[in-house]
Amino acid sequence: MKLSRLAALSSSLLLAATAALMGAAPASAASEAASTDYVALGDSYSSGVGAGSYDSASGNCKRSTKAYPRLWAAAHSPSTFAFTACSGARTGDVTASQLGPLNTGTDLVSITIGGNDAGFSDVMTTCVLQSESSCLSRINQARAYVDTTLPGKLDQVYSAIRGKAPAARVVVLGYPRFYKLNGTCTAGLSETERKAINDASDYLNNATAKRAADHGFTFASVVGSFTGHEICSGSAWLHSVNWLNIGDSYHPTAAGQSGGYLPPFSSAA
């Protein structure tokens, strides 16, 4: 009888200890996030263009309350949060006007950058309005830029970030593939053009990932999370050409921010 009571007591104590540990884990994670100083940098894919609900104080930068940096901050309540990402930003814009909040106490940085340097907007305009041959030619020009010029510009941005925030975890996010091939689209670009655009996005992501790794940063791909939600998928998380609001074109919707960008960033942060 005494042995059975002792066994029951030991079992109860073990269960209580396990429950206490399980209960402490979320609290510990919450405490860690609450002590985080987070700065969100980058271009329109980080500011949230296409997601709507823009902060009027952000002006033409179009920082959305539905952008993944704000969603992460709302979920984790960091001790400080600075959101300087801006629509249309190139690498030089980040170094010139976005790095102010970074300091030696910064713990976490996120950034998307490089698409505007590589001429993404002009690529899409050419492909939509001109011939297939013109589209493919412009894509090849962008790929050449990614080979010859972009790596050095990314190095400048990444070095500047590390110089101002030497202890920060820096998460560099990529860009999605834009089209589901052989999907629901029956007009517009040819399949050849769509595949070339997807391949160019992969090309940019690969170059960006290499530069990020060389600086000790984490690269978070969003290709997987957007798979099944590309343009022509029937369940797109990306705007196609929007003639009424042309700036939204080829940018993530609110669902693209919450479902396409937030999960990869949360996993890497």
Rank of each mutant, 00 (worst) to 15 (best):
S53L: 14
S53A: 15
Y54N: 13
Y54A: 11
D55Q: 15
S58N: 10
S58C: 11
S58I: 08
G59V: 11
C61E: 10
K62D: 08
R63E: 01
S64K: 01
S64N: 03
S64A: 05
T65A: 14
T65Q: 14
A67Y: 02
Y68P: 05
Y68M: 09
P69K: 02
P69W: 01
L71H: 00
W72F: 08
W72A: 04
W72Q: 05
A73F: 10
A73M: 13
H76P: 01
S77A: 14
S77C: 06
S77Q: 14
P78H: 08
P78K: 05
P78S: 07
T80R: 09
T80Y: 05
F81T: 04
F81G: 03
A82M: 06
A82V: 10
F83M: 06
T84L: 08
T84I: 09
A85E: 03
C86P: 11
C86Y: 09
C86R: 11
C86G: 09
C86W: 07
S87M: 09
G88D: 14
G88N: 15
A89M: 13
A89H: 10
R90Y: 08
R90V: 14
T91K: 10
G92E: 15
G92K: 15
D93E: 10
V94A: 03
V94H: 00
T95L: 06
T95S: 07
A96C: 11
S97Y: 06
Q98Y: 04
G100E: 11
G100R: 06
G100T: 12
G100I: 06
P101M: 02
P101K: 03
L102G: 07
N103G: 15
T104V: 13
T104S: 15
G105S: 15
G105A: 15
T106M: 12
L108A: 13
L108K: 10
L108V: 09
V109Y: 04
V109A: 10
V109Q: 07
S110D: 06
S110G: 09
S110W: 08
I113M: 09
I113A: 04
G115E: 01
G115F: 02
G115S: 02
N116G: 08
N116T: 05
D117L: 08
A118V: 05
G119N: 01
G119S: 03
G119E: 00
G119L: 02
F120L: 09
F120M: 07
F120G: 01
D122C: 01
V123T: 00
V123F: 00
V128Y: 03
L129A: 07
S131Q: 01
S131N: 00
S133G: 06
C135L: 05
C135Q: 05
C135Y: 04
L136D: 13
L136Q: 12
I139A: 02
